[in-house]
Amino acid sequence: MTDPRPTNTPAALSRRALSRGAAWSVPALAVASVAPALALSLTGCATMLWTKTTLSGAQGTSGVRTGTITLASGDKVTVTVSQNRTGGSRSYDQALTYDGTNGDFSATSAGAQRAGTAGAGANKDAKYVVDPSTTSSVLTLNQQTSSSGSRASETLTFSFKDSTGALVTPETMSFNIYDITMQDKSIISSTKANQRYTDQVSFANATMTTTNHGGVPATYTQTATSLTGTSQSTATGNYVDVVLTPTGSGNVTLTYANANTYGPLTSSFNQQYIGIGDLEVCF
């Protein structure tokens, strides 16, 4: 039925005003619906096993490992570890494929870890020893100087999200690092120019403390943010228990590099490796 009232009556004006008000209110509601989620208040600790993570990206250069941990409260946290190669190249016997359990950025159970090194038989260096009583899983970083002479270096970025998708920062992160060593001049020749590699692990956006050393040798040069190898590898293995305390709300990074100060470097002998044990995260 047609409304007989003129369009300029108070009732009609009120309807138009109401329509304009409704039109203006829609964008405001839309903006509110996409506002960033507020992070949950998390408490407690949980441990992530590397063997329980999924691998995506290009392993050895830009791989990504993703896992989920469940705190005692029942809250779930998604852990993402992203790899970025910044120098040298990944290392492994090229007769085998990079399939998640072989090569740089590979994840295995403790005792099954493998590393490619100069002269190592069966693609497993017997000196790369991880005691299963000290960790359940191992993330292996295995790299070498590139053919151009570039020293090996890669950075891992750790990020955490709660069940709402909001970024969260843990109070502490802890894990063992295995086999921080150096291959010095005496292995190949008597000249310092033939020293091959020095393992160095450094951290950004976090301070580091160590709580325990195990195996032989257990000697390092240590600062508030780094560990540098000072001894050769041995068949008994070694590890250091690292505790990281984030210093800000940004992501914590770990950089594994060849801190060798001598040269020349050649890709055939500058093959280095370390292992990272189970990751415990506390909020």
Rank of each mutant, 00 (worst) to 15 (best):
F203N: 02
T97G: 03
Q94G: 09
L244I: 07
V31M: 10
N123L: 14
A28W: 15
S19Q: 13
T145F: 02
A122D: 13
N270M: 08
N238I: 06
A23P: 00
E154K: 14
V130N: 03
V77Q: 02
L227F: 04
A12T: 10
F105E: 04
N84H: 10
F283N: 01
T9R: 03
A224C: 08
F158S: 00
L38R: 05
L38F: 14
T108L: 07
R5S: 15
S186R: 15
D184K: 11
N176I: 00
Q59H: 07
F175K: 00
T108D: 08
V81Y: 01
C282Q: 03
V81M: 05
T219F: 08
G60F: 06
Y273V: 12
Q272C: 12
N176G: 08
T140V: 08
G277T: 02
T135Q: 03
A23Y: 05
T108C: 04
D199I: 01
R151F: 08
L49V: 10
I187Y: 08
G149N: 06
N8T: 14
L29H: 14
A206V: 00
A259H: 05
K161P: 00
N123M: 15
S268I: 15
Q83F: 09
I69Y: 05
D125I: 06
Q94V: 13
W24H: 15
W50I: 00
T117G: 13
S249V: 14
T47N: 04
L49H: 09
M48Q: 07
T155R: 07
L265T: 15
R114H: 13
Q195Y: 06
A107N: 05
G63A: 06
V77M: 06
P36Q: 00
I177A: 04
T236M: 11
A193V: 04
Q83I: 09
V81F: 02
T70Q: 10
A39W: 04
T209W: 00
A257L: 09
T157L: 07
M208K: 07
Q113W: 13
Q200P: 11
T68D: 11
P10F: 06
G21C: 04
T245F: 03
L265F: 09
L139R: 01
V31N: 15
A126H: 13
A107E: 08
T181N: 10
T234E: 11
A30L: 12
E154L: 12
F158I: 00
T2M: 15
A120G: 11
A235I: 13
K127G: 11
V252S: 03
T181Q: 12
V281N: 01
V281R: 00
G44V: 02
Y273T: 14
I188A: 14
L38Q: 09
S19A: 14
D199H: 11
